[in-house]
Design a protein around this nucleic acid. Sequence first.
DNA 1: CTGTATCCTCTAAGATACTG
DNA 2: CAGTATCTTAGAGGATACAG
Lengths: 136, 136
Amino acid sequence: MTLTADQKRRRAQQDYNGGLGLCPARQLLETISSKWVTLVMLALSDGSLRHSELRRQVAGASQKMLTSTLRSLERDGLVSRTVTSSVPVRTDYQLTPVGHSLLDVVYRLKGWAEDNMDDVAHARMAYDRGRLTRVE
Amino acid sequence: MTLTADQKRRRAQQDYNGGLGLCPARQLLETISSKWVTLVMLALSDGSLRHSELRRQVAGASQKMLTSTLRSLERDGLVSRTVTSSVPVRTDYQLTPVGHSLLDVVYRLKGWAEDNMDDVAHARMAYDRGRLTRVE
DNA sequence: CTGTATCCTCTAAGATACTG
DNA sequence: CAGTATCTTAGAGGATACAG
């Protein structure tokens, strides 16, 4: 059986989605690139916080996003959640050891970014300038 | 002037989008979490490749995505593009030094993922199991 | 206080077809 | 060979209202 290049590509696409898509590194990228994940983890870096405290500290996140971010972090075992059934309810969140180790990795990312994003920004400007002069 | 909590949150949202949204680390995350960026960079890690070679090596990427990924990498100065105006045209791509240094960071990410994503996967299963028994 | 549930919007990614 | 142009779609993120 002979496959066209296009068919091969589509099959590869399947492979990607079912195989590489499950690759650990890919999953990690998807986790930490979620909009609020790093900010929440950062907020929790020096201790546990209540939901309302997080809300204040990670200002800008809607309640829905804060909750869903926390849920996914909890699900991944990066954050632990402690509910105190008083009235009113009290909920505390804190990084697990795994969560802390991930935060270390995030700091490395941050380090590279701070060291190099200036260059990147300049490259972008140069590139865009080139495009403009060619277009106008 | 007094702001409601909601007004404060919305202002914070603005601040985020106009301020933190421009934070280097955030930009970096957005770059490398784009679906094909890491795969393309990986493919280019041991030398330059032509467009068609990349197409074969990064199987699964549509032509559009491959091109647009390459464009954004070029714009950021992570990849350089060399066009040879023969017939037919020949285009070669290779990582710049900055691109290589970013690849190093990506390898760190990959390392953490390989070391910890097992734990994460187990945490997920445990979490989901809990949810299920509660729901059923 | 801590959350769900609903609806809406916007954009990354993909399918497809065409050009120098 | 290398690339652009257009259309479509799935899902992340956000606004709002309600509930234990």
